[in-house]
Design a protein around this nucleic acid. Structure first.
Lengths: 337, 337
DNA sequence: TTGTACGCGTTATCAT
DNA sequence: ATGATAACGCGTACAA
């Protein structure tokens, strides 16, 4: 390695290490002359700053961790891009870990972050994460932002989207188009996001004096095939359903499949709204009307908030909820327009 | 912070810091008794190992950097997942940075890695990266693996896919299906990957006595919308084209859009092959026939190789080229079967 | 098992 | 005004 140390530079420049350090960090009072000489020698010797030593001394670091459960999901890719951009702006390094929904891996990553003295973290926790995990986190006293997956502990900062509003928009759209028999398809039982989305759906129905039918609300795994399977059973039991709000675009794609098999055409004799606005949404035929959440913006906002926390911002925990938007395509028909 | 130090634990346990250190790292010969007592006190005091201090002392670290140019691209998401998994296995932390094709950001990240004493890095360099960048990297003497984007400097390890073979497979598939007017869509001019893929496409055409038409080879940015825009122009000019090999799945998705707009159906009156096999490929309708490059596997293999380098493996630089595979779905029709 | 010098930058205190 | 001295952050490993 033979790395050049500050002391070596100091010796060569005929000054103390304190002086070199001050030059490097633009602190203290150093004469222009000395400063120039030191800078020159730093360059000449190819000095590389040892952040590790500095961090040890200062008991800080410039490293933050991002824990996701599935980096493969394009939504999180977008979010990570937004976050990464923000981190770079503040000269923070980003650790990435992928829990793959394993609580064990998740815990291991957090422990690792603590050992490495990370100065902050962003968390999209694995499903079924124990509350104890969060309690332990609080005691760690490290700035932590919960992202995307809603979490109702008010002691944490949270950045995500407004699930409730999202499905309200979706449901309202269907109502305006004249639909009265609207189902909700997808999501898994434990999911908080799902609970919120169902809340938006239900509330909008009630606002319009429509009694929600609990049997028209069904779960589905996050895959096209499951969406298809689940909706087939639903439509067979309740043929009067003419529209559906889906928990995710992927599920909506499955529903489309079912409709086609049954000789029905989404956008003509059935209306479908998805959620997420994934790439495929605009590609399928007919293109999927859906709720768009600005993934990149979530990443950016989360990064911004984390940075402010690292800087010492100790206002009460914030909840930054980005508004989703209805993207009208073709899967609901155009009776409205 | 009030973090517990090794010295505090030692004092409380009535032993030396050396003993505690050895207990922590399972080294040396410590009596079972002492070991138990120390472990107990470590736990009791909530000791958190300070990796920073250890790293400083050992002049090493357990942190590696991954530099991508576009984490948003699902291909890299997959690759990152594979890599991340491998890193976790070896207790390495992964720094992620997204250059967004900016040489400046890229340089900044590498500098940051050096300052932070990273023990290795994986690089998918920005386009137009100066050779000087790589030369400088060599002098740094830090284990570095070039991934995905082909790079012809034999001094570096490389892990990627066989672009040439990939498009050969794709082109051959189309030829077998009877197509003779085959375009190549996507990629940008400077790209080495693209050059190789066009090589595979061209060679296969020639093998079959078909003269490649240079005007049927067009560039496109890595986005669906660009793929759509570019292909629209191409098809207008050359309506005789009945099939296309795409540089990327994303571009292929855009081409699908164009076809649909024109009232054509991929898989029926047009045949389309993508490259990458991203998740969406199997989800779109019709599902995209594509070249699978096992992105996850590339990540895993690259991680494995990097780890071995970090461990001191000093064999000559390796080139690990993973064979791609044709994944037949629906976008080419089934005239063959 | 222990004592302690060491890795390298930081900064409060002291000197000119 | 400028700059030097030296203790310090915390775990490691060698000599004793």
């Amino acid at each position: 390695m033979t790395s050049v140390t500050l002391a070596q530079v100091a010796k060569r420049a005929g000054v103390s290490t304190a002086t070199v350090s001050m030059v490097l960090r633009n602190r203290g009072r150093i004469s222009h002359e000395t400063r120039q000489r030191v800078l020159h020698i730093l360059d000449e010797m190819g000095y590389v700053y040892n952040q590790t030593a500095a961090n040890l001394r200062n008991r800080t670091s410039n490293q933050v961790g991002l824990l996701l459960h599935d980096i493969t999901n394009p939504f999180y890719g977008e979010m990570t891009a937004g976050l990464s951009h923000e981190m770079e702006r503040h000269d923070l390094l980003l650790f990435l870990a992928n829990s793959e929904e394993s609580g064990e891996r998740q815990q291991k990553f957090v422990d690792s972050l603590m050992r490495n003295n990370a100065c902050g973290m962003l968390l999209c926790a694995a499903r079924e994460t124990s509350p104890l995990f969060f309690e332990a986190l609080k005691r760690r006293n490290i700035p932590t932002i919960i992202v995307v997956r809603p979490f109702d502990d008010v002691d944490f900062d949270f950045v995500g989207t407004d699930n409730f509003l999202g499905t309200q928009l979706a449901t309202q759209h269907l109502l305006r188009l004249g639909h009265r028999h609207i189902a909700f398809i997808g999501g898994s039982l434990g999911s908080t996001s799902r609970a919120q989305r169902i809340g938006g759906y239900t509330s909008k129905l009630l606002e319009n004096n429509i009694q929600p039918e609990s049997e028209w609300i069904v779960t589905s795994q996050a895959s096209q095939s499951e969406g298809s399977r689940v909706s087939e059973a639903l439509f067979r039991r309740f043929p009067q359903i003419t529209a559906a709000v889906c928990y995710q675009d992927i599920v909506a794609l499955g529903v489309m499949q079912t409709l086609r098999k049954a000789g029905r055409t989404p956008g003509k004799d059935f209306a479908l709204v998805g959620f997420d606005d994934i790439t495929e949404a605009s590609l399928v035929q007919p293109a999927l009307t859906t709720i768009s959440v600005a993934a990149k913006e979530i990443g950016r906002k989360a990064g911004e908030l984390l940075y402010s926390r690292i800087q010492g911002n100790d206002e009460p925990p914030k909840r930054i909820i980005l508004p989703p938007a209805l993207v009208i395509r073709e899967s609901c028909g155009d009776r409205l327009r």
